[in-house]
Design a protein around this nucleic acid. Structure first.
Length: 292
DNA sequence: ATGTTTGTTCCGAT
DNA sequence: CATCGGAACAAACA
């Protein structure tokens, strides 16, 4: 499930637990490959100190330092990636054969284990230049972007609004679940063209996105039916209990039967009554007149 | 057996 | 060139 709220939850917890810790040893599963190579990763990370932990889009970034140099362990959880923090060494399974793909042990006896059943995620060791490249791939963060950049970026792509929200180069961190909920909250039909949205709708949409992401963070993310996502302590998120429309059958506002469609290969829920496909201000050029 | 899933990237078609 | 849809990555589940 990891979208922005889940990644933020994990990143915040890691920052609290790991900052200042020395990595005493590292192991990578024999059947797993990390960038740039397992050898390089082990060589660099072993005996390094964790300086900070942060997030770029949906990527967790652990900053490690060693003799005046610095590297960035970037971790993408994709669909099924997990990070689990242990107070004591997880003894049982050997990282060479178990589910553990990458394991870092810290002085003091704690450890961090990365697992990923479907292996869509990754662990990479980046240098300064590679981190910049990574950062450049992503659009601004929805929690800090201003309305003008948000609308300008979205409008730069001629497609439907839901597809644009999922395009990480335009705005980063929003995934399918939160996109569904944000569009419902802003009463915008997922298929509306980016160019047809008014400045008022962009304003509502950005506010909705922020509110929903903040709620998601407060609830420590969403754990779906597969129980895949947990925080680093193994606790489930709670935000699935607060979904506005994702996975629902009836509109919480007008009680209409919700509709479901596949849009750009992603499951899409919408209320045919609250989210009209026709823009209420269709035909007007308010946005353009304000910009120029 | 087929279709579905929280993400991303790449390719060929348009 | 921009964009789209589908496939791919791989696994569990209904």
């Amino acid at each position: 499930m990891p979208e922005l709220p889940e990644v933020t939850t994990i990143s915040n917890q890691l920052k609290k637990e790991l900052t200042g810790k020395v990595i005493s040893s590292v192991s990578v599963n024999v059947g797993y490959k990390v960038h740039p190579s397992n050898e390089e990763f082990l060589k660099w990370v072993t005996r390094s100190t964790i300086e900070d932990v942060g997030r770029i889009a949906k990527v967790i970034v652990i900053i490690v330092g060693k003799s005046d140099a610095r590297r960035y362990i970037s971790i993408h959880l994709a669909m099924t990636g997990r990070l689990r923090f242990w107070r004591s060494l997880p003894n049982q399974e050997s990282p060479q054969t178990g589910d553990s793909l990458v394991e870092m042990r810290f002085e003091g006896g704690t450890s961090l284990v990365f697992t990923d059943v479907r292996r869509f995620g990754y662990v990479k060791l980046l240098n300064e230049g590679e981190l910049k490249v990574l950062k450049a791939k992503y659009g601004p963060d929805p929690l800090s972007v201003d309305l003008k950049s948000f609308s300008k970026n979205i409008r730069s792509r001629r497609t439907n609004i839901k597809n644009a929200l999922l395009d990480q180069s335009l705005i980063s961190g929003i995934g399918n679940i939160y996109a569904n909920d944000a569009l419902f909250m802003a009463k915008i039909h997922p298929k509306v063209s980016t160019g047809d949205l008014t400045i008022q709708q962009f304003n509502n949409l950005l506010s909705s996105i922020r509110q929903i992401l903040y709620e998601g963070i407060e609830h420590r993310g969403s754990t779906l039916g597969d129980l895949m996502y947990t925080d680093i302590y193994g606790f489930y998120g709670e935000h699935q209990n607060y979904f506005r429309i994702y996975g629902k059958s009836f509109c919480s506002i007008c009680k209409s039967k919700l509709e479901f469609m596949v849009l750009n290969s992603r499951g899409t829920y919408f209320c045919p009554v609250c989210q009209k496909e026709d823009s209420p201000d269709s035909g007007e050029s308010l946005y353009r007149s304000l910009l120029i």
